[in-house]
């Protein structure tokens, strides 16, 4: 775990050295702000809640998760630091977890920049902090899935843009079962069953401040599954297979 944290610190530091991280966080902040105040018309709704922002979060996290991870493995291979990493005494799992934690740290930082929105809400009404905390915890859990997916894609290819598109594709596939259009294609009961596998649809409970064990298990197991696949790819490459 200690090595994972060292790798995470190193990755986080190098991310923060790059202006790209600031651009991502800035864009995420502006998008959240615009959605909350203009698309969802917070003041016109007259309700002291962050729920309208949280309902959009699956799509925002899908956009930002793979963007934060696209270069974590791909750039190592592109700039030639992969060999150093591959031959370093740090275990593959430590490397994978370290990079995951670094990206998650950046995501948490990006989410922290939406706290002024919550402060504004509380200034005008009585914000439910418990429900808001539940929403943010859900964001971290769902974000972990998209980061793990992005990280996995980054390990597959050398090109960062390809990794980004692949990450978005996997994220979209994970969202797909929970989308509304299934209703008209397969009927209500089948759509309802499918909905249980949509990571975005399962976020609905967290968005209203309800953390369910089945949702937490889904997010954690998907994250662990994707990180394991990522580890397998990295280990295979490390050992020259």
């Amino acid at each position: 775990m200690g090595h994972s944290l060292t790798v995470a610190t190193k990755e986080l530091r190098s991310s923060l050295n790059s202006p790209l991280a600031y651009v991502f966080i800035g864009v995420f902040t502006i998008a959240s702000w615009a959605i909350f105040f203009f698309v969802e018309k917070f003041f016109a709704r007259d309700e002291a809640t962050m729920r309208s922002l949280f309902t959009w979060m699956p799509w925002l996290l899908l956009a930002v998760g793979p963007a934060l991870t696209m270069s974590l493995w791909a750039s190592e291979r592109r700039v030639g630091t992969w060999e150093i990493l591959a031959t370093s005494p740090v275990s593959t799992s430590n490397l994978v977890v370290g990079k995951f934690l670094a990206a998650l740290g950046l995501l948490v930082l990006a989410l922290a920049f939406t706290i002024p929105i919550a402060t504004t809400v509380n200034g005008f009404g009585n914000l439910d902090f418990g429900a808001t905390l539940g929403g943010y915890l859900g964001c971290v859990l769902l974000g972990s899935v998209f980061i793990a997916a992005g990280l996995f894609c980054s390990s597959l290819v050398q090109d960062e843009l390809v990794a980004l598109v692949l990450g978005w594709t996997i994220g979209a596939v994970l969202m797909l079962p929970g989308l509304g259009f299934w209703e008209s294609l397969v009927g209500t009961n089948a759509a309802s069953a499918l909905r249980q596998f949509g990571v975005g649809a399962r976020f609905e409970a967290s968005a209203r401040g309800l953390l369910e064990l089945r949702d937490i298990v889904l997010y954690i197991s998907l994250t662990v599954g994707l990180l394991s696949a990522n580890g397998a790819v990295v280990a295979s490459r490390r050992h020259g297979n």
């Binding site: 439910d128 418990g130 905390l133 539940g134 596998f197 953390l211 064990l213 889904l218």
Partner: peptide, 17 residues
């Protein structure tokens, strides 16, 4: 695993005030 678990409604934490 998650398909089986999706019908499980226990273990809920209501964080609302």
């Amino acid at each position: 695993f998650n398909g089986i678990l999706s019908n499980f409604h226990g273990g809920r934490m209501d964080l609302t005030e």
